[in-house]
Structure formats: structure tokens, C-alpha cells
Nucleic acid binder design. Structure first.
Lengths: 178, 178
DNA sequence: CTCTAGTTTCTGTTTTTACAGAAATACAGA
DNA sequence: TCTGTATTTCTGTAAAAACAGAAACTAGAG
């Protein structure tokens, strides 16, 4: 890892590890960390050099990050090369990531649960009833999560932040002591 | 996969895939799915037979699930064998999972960010200042998340559910139209 | 103390994933 | 059209993870 301060290095390595624990490829996460920290858009060759990974690996990882929607290509005047830039607003960035994971993983899971519930409703016997109930509870939980997500997602960032910061007021609204 | 209805099979397979996308071993997730659906505690041998995986694999996966805190051992009268049972309350179960992921991954990340911020505060130059600011934003975001988690976590399940269900009232509280 | 059923740990194999380097492709400017 | 630069795709290899089966260990029952 060339030309990076110790703090930056530590951050990039940790972010890579975090990635793996959440099902994100280590290199993808490291490149994301680098672009997030970078003061200006970087081109692929710089990323190779800095992180010491192969050009092809960088290319594929950048494409992956673009699919996630958190990295964009830009072009600088006088330079033909693609330059890459990460979203910088942390809240917006996670909003995008969560939206994407919902689309890829949660929505299909809810669809699957719905199908399984239907299927087990057609099946006979006590076991099938029991199965259906369990699956329905799971479905209900995911749908609750999605509903909440959608509500929060409609808010402007500063409003959403206020919501998450809100302490006692929230609890009073719920008619409870915290 | 023996002795399972088509719906149950579909669920277990999907849950296994979901697992891998979130950094959970496929077999671990499948066993969890099976225990979640099961009407009664199962012993290791039954799990082997049903899912068709090796005894050792089941043993390790069960230990993993116990470490997560979502599967418990029970003993039946007249039977020396350990029997395993998943938590059944979905909301509680995810509460446990989230708590554990926070402990394992989020807390260390916040600690790392704190260290990096300190470190880059000691470093000199414009780049270090820029780095520190980015890391501080990230840290702030994670701390916001943790605060919110802790607040919600203090609530009884039904109250928390009410919070997530709450629609317009919430927005009015925030002084906004949804 | 010994036997037996149960469980965990260890070791080697298989499978999957990540990765580097080469080859192929695209593309702007001369 | 040709040429040099940038990018992507392809292919084989290396590393990591998952896994099965055997061996080792544990603990009741007799």
C-alpha cells in the first residue's frame, strides 16, 4: 500500500475485513474505502498501484461498485482515462446500499415466503399448518422492516437523522418511559 | 432432504443462500432454518439425515448457532442425546442477531475509526485533515446507528413493533408531512 | 472398571472464490 | 485507416472456505 498514511491504511484494511463479514468481496470493499477517503477521483492505475492488486481485479471491482451505485465514473479535462469517485455523504451512501440490498435480497425473500406460505396452505396435516404459521411470522417481520424502511426513505436526510437522534420525545409519543 | 414438504425445502434452501450473502455459512443457515420450522427440538443425527450433511459439519454449525445465541440445547426425558431448538419469536431472534453483529463488527469498527481519527489528527498536512473529516463523518454515522439501536433495544417487543408500524404520527412528530 | 452411545476435534479432500496476467476489444487522435 | 492508450473479458492458478470421515474424547449405565 503505497503513499498512504498509517491511519488510512488501517482504515482500508479494516473496511476490507468488514466487507467480507457482510458478504462483500475484500478487494471491492478496500477500493471503496480508498475512493471514499480520496480527495479527488482516481483512475484504475492509481488504485492498482496504491493497493497492489491486479488491473483486472480493480476493473471488475469498480464495475461491482458501480452496480451498487456508490461509485461513479467522471472524466477530467485533458485525460482520456476513466476516473472513479465514491459517494461522500455517508448517510446517503448507506441509504443507497440498504436500498440495493433490499432489492437484491429482502424483496426476493419476501416473495419466497409468500410462495411458501401459499404452498403450505395447500398442503394438509398439522405439520403444514405449523410450518405456515412460522413462515407467516417471518414474512410479517420482513414486511414490517420494509414498511419502516420505505417511510424513512421518503424523508430528506436531515429529517431522517433527526428521527434517529430523537430520544425522549419518541418514547413519550409511544406512551412510555424510556 | 428427507421428510420435508416442498415448501419447507424451498424455505431451507433459500435461507441458506441468504446466509451466504450476509456472511453466514450456508450449512449454518440451513440448520437454523430447519430448527426454526421444526415443531420439536431435534437431535444432531436427525439434522444430518434431513439435510444430508456430515455429522461433524452439523456439530460445528450447531455450536456456531449457539454462539450466536439463537439456538439452545434441551434434553428430553429418557434420551441422553442433546436436542436443539431455535428461538421462535422472530422479532426477538433478530434482536439477538443484531445485538451480536453489533458486538462483533460495529463496535470494533467504531473503535477503529476513533483510533484512526486520533492518529490522523496527529499527522500533518492537508490530506490528513481531509482524511480525518471523512472518518469522523463515518464514525458519527455509526454512532448514530448504535444510539438508535440502543434506544429501540430498551423497548419491550410489542412497543418496538408499534414504533416501526407507526406511520403518520411519527411524521407529524417530526413536524413534517410524510 | 468397562462398555456403549453421544459428541467433539482433527485431518485430508473437495469446492468455491478470489485473483493475476494475458489476450481481446474499444476508441480517440493523427 | 492506423496507432497508441485505456478498458474489459478470458483463462489458469492460488488461496480460502466448506465439508466428510475417522479418530479421540466424554459420560452414563451396568
Amino acid at each position: 500500500m503505497k503513499d498512504l498514511t498509517p491511519a488510512t491504511q488501517k482504515f482500508i484494511l479494516h473496511w476490507g475485513e468488514m466487507g467480507t463479514k457482510w458478504g462483500i468481496n475484500r478487494t471491492v470493499a478496500q477500493i471503496h474505502a480508498l475512493l471514499f477517503i480520496a480527495e479527488r477521483p482516481l483512475h484504475a492505475e492509481e488504485i492498482c498501484g496504491t493497493l497492489g492488486v491486479a488491473r483486472s481485479n480493480v476493473s471488475n471491482s469498480l464495475k461491482e461498485l458501480q452496480n451498487w451505485g456508490i461509485v461513479k465514473v467522471t472524466h477530467l479535462p485533458e485525460d482520456r482515462r476513466d476516473h472513479f469517485e465514491s459517494m461522500k455523504d455517508v448517510f446517503e451512501m448507506f441509504r443507497v446500499i440498504i436500498t440495493e440490498r433490499k432489492r437484491r435480497e429482502i424483496d426476493p425473500t419476501i416473495a419466497m415466503l409468500r410462495e411458501c406460505v401459499e404452498e403450505s396452505a395447500r398442503e394438509t396435516g398439522g405439520a403444514a399448518i405449523h410450518t405456515r404459521q412460522r413462515l407467516e411470522q417471518l414474512q410479517e417481520f420482513f414486511e414490517l422492516g420494509v414498511d419502516f424502511y420505505e417511510k424513512v426513505n421518503r424523508l430528506e436526510t436531515p429529517t431522517a437523522v433527526r428521527l434517529f437522534r430523537m430520544g425522549d420525545k419518541l418514547f413519550r409519543l409511544l406512551g412510555l418511559k424510556g
